[in-house]
Design a binder for these strands. Structure first.
Lengths: 163, 163
DNA sequence: ACAACATACATGACGCGTCATCCATTCCCC
DNA sequence: GGGGAATGGATGACGCGTCATGTATGTTGT
């Protein structure tokens, strides 16, 4: 029930990566393009959507973000003029649309190349083919474990009939 | 200057891991022990220190944290009674000491086993030997790239003589 | 000895993320 | 068709992290 020394070492290395790599990418994004990682992610999704326009809940699904997180983020991005909200899609009175503004499109298009270059530079340009595929497989395995919470100590049998 | 499809796929998987894995571990830590990941990290360091007592700047080095971040964190943890600050180490009038309280030691000791189990459960128990070592090597490589900013476009030659 | 600089730490402002909660609309089922 | 429940979304409170600054003590050069 404890990590082996090998696992400890890998885990510590991973923890450092998981702190430093996003931090570094954030800094680069911020200084080169004035965008945060969160803004970048939203802008990428919107720019890939038809008409640069999407329902918030679709955005949330694509980003795997909590709805509240997205809502806060959109509020800040609207304040910055990167997106704008339009209410009342005729089909669903509850809904809304988020649209990329011209400024938003400019921002993402000018930020993307440098960001991709940074990712290549910090990660992929230094990996062998085999390291790439194994790294990918490890990530997929972790995602699988996150989705199937084997952690459920006794509830794996069946969902209780909700009495 | 763009990611290949393979790289794209691995990158997206990594991004999800880097969001979901810490989030999941945080949740578990929070619900099982009432600790945040940041608190856990500080408590681990302090509990390994002699007398559960350390200078903030040493803590910062060990954790690789910015000084300001640590200071804020210690303020919150002091408010929660997990650590306490003592000023005036006789050797250095500027300094301070952070000490683990009894509550802090109890917290970390009761939290550690479940946390280790969660890490094993979510990550290491599902990796082959070869995946473990390759994963570790990839992390080390990324860390190396982060330390040696090959990104420095033209300033690698020499630091300017600071005119 | 004293000015200039460096070190150790604290703090306020702000962006970010989560949780809990709330409002409006739409769906469903009797 | 009327009363839940579910869905789409917003918001406030709070912990967290960074940047910019501030303050006090120590160090160094002249």
């Amino acid at each position: 029930m404890w990590l082996t020394p090998d696992q400890q070492q890998v885990w510590r290395a991973y923890l450092r990566v998981s702190e430093s790599l996003p931090a570094q990418l954030n800094r680069e994004l911020q200084t080169e393009s004035g965008l945060s990682a969160a803004e970048y992610a939203v802008l990428v999704q919107l720019s890939e959507a038809d008409g640069g326009r999407q329902r918030p809940f679709q955005l949330g699904e694509a980003l795997q973000w909590e709805q509240s997180r997205l809502s806060h983020q959109l509020t800040r991005m609207e304040r910055r003029g990167l997106v704008c909200r339009e209410n009342c899609p005729s089909e669903d009175g509850r809904g809304a649309y988020v649209t990329l503004t011209a400024a938003g499109r400019t921002a993402i298009e000018s930020a993307a190349p440098a960001h991709a270059a940074a990712v290549l530079d910090l990660v992929f340009n230094h990996l062998t083919e085999e390291e790439l595929t194994t790294f990918g497989r490890v990530c997929e395995k972790i995602l699988t474990n996150l989705d199937h919470p084997a952690t459920a100590p006794a509830a794996t049998a069946a969902a209780p009939p909700c009495p």
